[in-house]
Each structure stands twice: as C-alpha cells, then as structure tokens.
Design a protein around this nucleic acid. Structure first.
Lengths: 256, 256
DNA sequence: GGTAATTTGTTCGTATGTATC
DNA sequence: TGATACATACGAACAAATTAC
C-alpha cells in the first residue's frame, strides 16, 4: 500500500499496526477505532475509497472476517457509505467547535453551513445538591430546572447534555427549548439576551450504552466530556451544563 | 446499597447502569472507564474509599470477579489502590491543565505539587510539508526540528507529543531539552524568553499500541489529542505541536 | 485482647463469546 | 462449516487482612 498521507500524519499512523489481544477490547473494534481516527484526521478524505477488506486484513495482520466486522460497524454508524459495486466511501468531517466566552452551538453549526437542531430528551425540577448549589451560587435545595438535550447538525447527533438552571428565573425555559430547539433562543424568551461562558472543563471517555442510544454511536467510541459554567452580563452564574460529544464529529478549538 | 454519591452525579450515573454485552468492549473495561470518569470528575475524592467490590457488583449488576478485573486495571494505572481487608482507595487524581496563552507544562505540574519531567524519545530534521509550512509561516521544504517527547508528573507519563520548530532559529534546542527535560528551559537557552499559545485544537481518541508503550496505559483507554500553535511576542509562529494525553491523568480547563 | 463482621485475595468449575484455520 | 484456542463472565466457596465492638 502506497501512502497518500501528508507526512505530518503518516509518521504517526504507520508506525505500528500491532493490535492488542486480551485487553478488553475486541480486535475488530480496535481496527474500527483506528479507521475512525484516520477518517477524522482526513487520512481518508470524503468520498475517497478505502482499501479492500483483503488489503486491510493484510495491513492489520488479521483474518478477513475480523476486518469485515470492523467495516460493518463503521458502516452502521454512517461513517462509511457502502455503494454496491463501487466500494466503500467516507461520509463526513467533524465540526470545528470553538470554546470561548461567546460559544453558541447554533451559531457555530450555522457558520459551517450545517443545520443546527436540538431535541428535548427529558426535563424535571430538582433541588440543588451542594455541588450544584455552589456552582450556581444559590442555596442548597433551591429548585433547579434539569434539562436533558441532544443537539444536532444536519440531523446527525453531535452531543448530549444535561443543563441546570435556577427554576425561578426561567419559568418557560423548557417550553421554549422544546419549541425552538435552541438554548440561546429559549434563554432570550426568558429575558436573558446575552451571556458568557466563564469556564470549561474537558475530559475524554469512551461511550457507554446511554451515549450510544442518544448519539447513535457504538460502545467504546471516544467521547469528549465537557462541563461548562455560564454567567450573565452582571456576573451571576445561571447555568451549569455537562455534555458528552461524539469525538469523531467535533473538533474543539481554543484561541488564546 | 445506599448510595453515597452526591446527588449531582448520582442522577446521571445511576440513570442507567446497563452495560452493553457483545459490543466489542468487555464489561470489565466499561466499568473501569465509568469509574475512571467518576474519579476524574471528583465523584470519588483522593484517599476516599470506594464502595466494596460486592456493592459495586450490585450497582453494575455483574459478578464480583468482573468488578475486580476493572479495579485491577485501574490499580495498574495507579488510579486506585486496593488493600486487603480495608478497601479500595483513590490513589491519584488527574492534573488540572489550564489551556491559556501562557500554558507551560512544567509550571502547571509544579503548581500542583508534583514533579515535572520530560524525556526525549526521538528527534530529527525534516523538511516542512505543506500543512506544517502553512502553520509555521515558512516556505514548504524548510528544515524543521522534529522533537518527540514524553512528559511526566512524578515519573508518571502524562502525554506524548511531537513538536516542530524551524531548525535555523533553534540550533541547540534538542540538546537543551535532552538536558533539562523542559521545553520552556530549552527555548530560553535558544534566546526565546517568552511566548504565547495562540490556538489549541482538542479531540479524543482511544489508545493504540504506541500510546500504550509511551504512556503506560492500556489499549482502548481514552486519549485527549491536542494540537497547539505557539508564537513569540512579535507574533511570529515558531512551533506546532501535537500531543496525546492519557485522559485519566489530565483534566483540561479553559477560562474565558 | 477476643470475636464477629467486613473487605480484598484466591481457586475451583461452567458457560459463552471471539478469532483463527 | 466445524474444530480449536483463548478471553470473558458467572457462581460458590474459602483464605487472609483489617476494622468495629
């Protein structure tokens, strides 16, 4: 196989194709992850044809059945599109997601010529526990709106999140979000025209069953875990949120 | 079993403890990842005792052996420490890693009372390809120093990275880094006293064999992939780096 | 100090899933 | 397709260390 990678990426990708057995991750899944990463790094570009299963089997040093299972998993995720007779092709590039004081999901997605969307998964009123109360600067036990959402770009789920807001301040928030699918719009309906993200914590995880169901990905896929705190222009914290984003579909960027 | 989780996390954590079978990721690994995430989110604090293996087995609906396998994996990573008769304790928390204009590995680690270190893995001179040349604002083909490093906190590997620098500008960079183990110190020896990180890209991946070897983690563990661009005080870009950090050992934070 | 309860550590056996050939 | 080797997961029982009373 001749590599058509830019050297920049080539080095790290081709260094070693060894796969680990007995590490708790099936071989077919390791191969799927490797291909997924290469696709998200543009090693295989959109609409480019992947090598044949036989070639991939040689590359990874495994049985062809094992490669077939990996490819099937990625095809099921919509990452690969199988066109009968022509081959297997790559689907979609990740969204660039800038983290800044003014981070708005809808605006970010729109600016990249994709259609933003949001779906209400669940909502409830719950009393603030100590951790949440401290972050939101309210008394423990204060009623909070708990809003669980999934956000989309072109109907592809990007991230699932839980948002907490002081209930007293945003009486019609849930309704407004359910109608508009936009947090920004829902907050505006509740009298909050502008706000700032003051802190963001980022970690990584691998997908569990809940992530799979909400984000339409597979168990073991990498996930970006993002916790953010937002405050209004008077400096009062009004929101804490935690979201889990499919790493293959977003690329965080931080300018400083 | 009465839960001793703060409610904040309890809700989200206990909503569905269902683990997926046959998805290519062993159940013990799924449990290990879930515990790892909880620990990094401070659900379990340093030196706090985890619920007994029997209780965790009930919580996850699995056999105690399966929990033991998960705990063993985390213990091997130095995250948990199990004592016969006493219980299992949280040994090491992730480093909080603020992303800002002035981000220095050594300073971040030192400020958290851990000992920073760096090891030179490989180095070479290579011509800039188009992607690198554009980022570094040099002509394609310009000689670059390619510096591969692993960085430590208390001798625990935190991240492995590749750094590119214009070769002409930093004649003794490799030498200086090999001696000091600090990029900041090596740059200072080459006449660059101060610099700013202007952009950071963040994604997630799962560990491959190379990550396992360099970072002493297991295949399938979550990885934070971080690409950063640094410029000097005159606004000239002088460095591009890509590093892969063990997600269990760092928690990125961005203030805006 | 003595004893019971708790908790991790170990060893059987059995059934199922994964990967190769 | 079937045979084989190995990893995964469960169940029961018991040993060893620690803690609580």
């Amino acid at each position: 196989m001749t590599s058509n990678l830019p050297k920049f990426y080539d080095e790290r990708m081709t260094r070693s194709e060894t796969l680990e057995r007995g590490g708790g991750v099936a071989i077919w899944r390791q191969i799927a992850e490797r291909l997924r990463t290469e696709i998200s790094l543009d090693v295989w570009k959109t609409d480019e044809r992947l090598p044949s299963e036989a070639d991939l089997a040689v590359r990874f040093g495994v049985n062809r059945h094992t490669v077939r299972r990996a490819v099937a998993a990625l095809a099921e995720d919509g990452i690969l599109k199988a066109n009968q007779g022509r081959g297997t092709f790559v689907a979609q590039k990740p969204i660039r997601y800038p983290i800044a004081a003014r981070t708005r999901f809808s605006e970010i997605v729109s600016s990249q010529d994709r259609e933003p969307g949001g779906e209400l998964i669940a909502h409830s009123i719950e009393p603030a526990d100590d951790a949440l109360a401290a972050r939101l600067e309210v008394a423990a036990g204060t009623d909070l709106i708990r809003l669980e959402t999934v956000r989309f770009a072109d109907d592809i789920p990007i991230g699932a999140g839980i948002n907490w807001y002081p209930a007293a301040r945003f009486p019609s928030l849930v309704d407004a979000f359910a109608r508009s699918g936009s947090i920004t719009a829902a907050l505006r309906e509740n009298g909050l025209d502008d706000y700032r993200r003051i802190q963001t914590l980022v970690s990584a995880d691998v997908a569990g069953p809940q992530d799979c169901a909400l984000l339409d990905i597979a168990t073991g896929d990498p996930i970006l875990v993002i916790e953010s705190i937002n405050e209004d222009l008077e400096g009062r914290t009004f929101n804490v949120s935690r979201s889990r984003m499919a790493a293959a579909r977003v690329q965080l960027s931080i300018d400083s």
